[in-house]
Design a binder for these strands. Sequence first.
DNA 1: CATTCTATGAGACAACTTGACTCGTAGCGA
DNA 2: TCGCTACGAGTCAAGTTGTCTCATAGAATG
Lengths: 189, 189
Amino acid sequence: MPSETDPRFLRSREAILNAARELLLGSGPTAVTHAQVAERAGVGRATVYRHWPQTEPLLLEAMATVPMPFLDKPTAPTQDWLRRELTAIASQLELDDVRAVSTTLANAALWDETMDARRARFAGILTDRLAAALDDAQARGEIVLTLPSREAAAMAIGPMYYRSTIERAPIDSTLIDAAMAALGTWSET
Amino acid sequence: MPSETDPRFLRSREAILNAARELLLGSGPTAVTHAQVAERAGVGRATVYRHWPQTEPLLLEAMATVPMPFLDKPTAPTQDWLRRELTAIASQLELDDVRAVSTTLANAALWDETMDARRARFAGILTDRLAAALDDAQARGEIVLTLPSREAAAMAIGPMYYRSTIERAPIDSTLIDAAMAALGTWSET
DNA sequence: CATTCTATGAGACAACTTGACTCGTAGCGA
DNA sequence: TCGCTACGAGTCAAGTTGTCTCATAGAATG
């Protein structure tokens, strides 16, 4: 990694990352090879090797350029915040690139250390944030949880993820409502 | 596809399929190449080409040798049947090979027609069977569904699938109970 | 047991891919 | 204007892929 501010270097880097992302979305992770990335990026093959000697870190970094669904800072009332966030995740999951990245992550993590670390970090953030928000909501008396708060992520996001990646069907609000209701009993308002 | 009963043919076929499955489970779908399969199967490279000129149908057939979780014929009461079936799916999802096959299916289906057909068939069976069982239970007054019955599979299996493939944590009975409760209101008994 | 059929392993082969290296050029900062 | 360095193009050896040939041994048939 020679220079870090040289425009030529940054230009190549961006072109390579874009090409890698496009290849991933268009043809899957196996298409992300030095040769194919170079051609699509309009860059010499050697340049790709110079920037990323191994394809796997390149794939990883290209995946990181896709905006993944996370949970925003919670606002009160938690119920409204959660419905808003789950709806946002639902629309993210309709996007091809989010589907591509998440299923690639889940799959590759089974055999690749680094991918697994990324998966764990991603899952951990969602679990932590949702648990914190729900614990707080329960402390404020907004909800009585029927589930340990750290299981809420699986309960809330799982159905949408399954629907989007296994059933490949659109996520409707019914599913979101049911998932929210499954977390606990919300107080009237 | 020369002979169909020749023991030599069947022996090679089995050895190849086993090797392909082992490679998939041990090193991921990209490891399933003619050369690697041949070596692990203790078979000539040409033999693998003769049986499967393309690697993709081989991978597909190897995946089909892994017993995937399905829903058994429903028995009454539906509540007991469902808890039994979901618990069975939960333990299946703890197995490396089931995880490998399901995440590979979900991922590869995004770019491969045949994989996608397999995914759709798999998802459809689960959706259909659960919907039928729940419709029947509702007709018998055992449950009042809070969800269209064809959304039940996502609601019931989704959390376990997410937990197993994204969070990579064990599935406890709390999650199963919560998922069942989310489907509707079960009658007392 | 002898004969015929055929799936197989070993090997040869060309075409292609991969990863490493060299060198002249052109974009960049000073 | 000048030095620096990232770059593209090209070369190269090593490895991979897909195809084909041929002698052999395993299986069915009589």
